[in-house]
């Protein structure tokens, strides 16, 4: 594997994990009593940027290397389902995340948002942030199993 591909692989994992930290940090801020709108704006923007970065790097690694070099090893190995179930699911639910991140950023950054007045809106945003964290965690665990299956 070339250095660029290694950096893309490592970069997509690190930026994805950073995104999860940002979205996880949004949840207590949204459901707690001490709402900090500016902090939420920064977290939602940082989450979106790191998710997009992870998307681009993961896409580069997946389209340039995984299909030709990793997939055949997994499919002929002891855990072929690591590709046919986990990787297939991972690569597609991963596509949801940037759009969910865009929604969270739009809600936190919009000047017309009633985020500081509407508790129902904050709770709905917290649930969505939790879904991003849950899907991101699932995608991360799938990635660990897929890496293990390729060895």
């Amino acid at each position: 594997m070339s250095l660029v591909l290694k950096l893309a692989l490592i970069g997509h994992v690190l930026s994805g994990l950073l995104a999860l930290i940002f979205y996880y940090a949004m949840i207590p801020n949204l459901i707690g009593k001490n709402l900090q709108p500016n902090f939420l704006k920064r977290l939602s923007l940082a989450g979106l940027v790191t998710l997009l970065f992870s998307w681009i790097l993961a896409g580069y690694y997946y389209t340039q290397y995984y299909g030709q070099s990793v997939k055949p090893i997994i499919k002929s190995g002891q855990l072929p389902w690591a590709h046919s179930i986990l990787m297939e699911t991972k690569e597609h639910i991963f596509l949801f995340l940037p759009f969910l991140g865009l929604v969270l950023a739009a809600a936190c950054l919009s000047s017309k948002s009633d985020i500081d007045k509407d508790e129902t809106l904050r709770k709905a945003l917290a649930k969505l942030a939790f879904v991003v964290v849950a899907l991101g965690t699932a995608v991360t665990i799938f990635g660990v199993v897929i890496s293990g299956a390729a060895k």
Partner: peptide
């Protein structure tokens, strides 16, 4: 917006389960 956000949350979970 809160109704639509809850709908998006539900659709995301359901879509994940459909794909899996």
């Amino acid at each position: 917006p809160s109704f639509l956000l809850n709908l998006l949350t539900a659709v995301s979970i359901l879509a994940t389960l459909v794909i899996l």
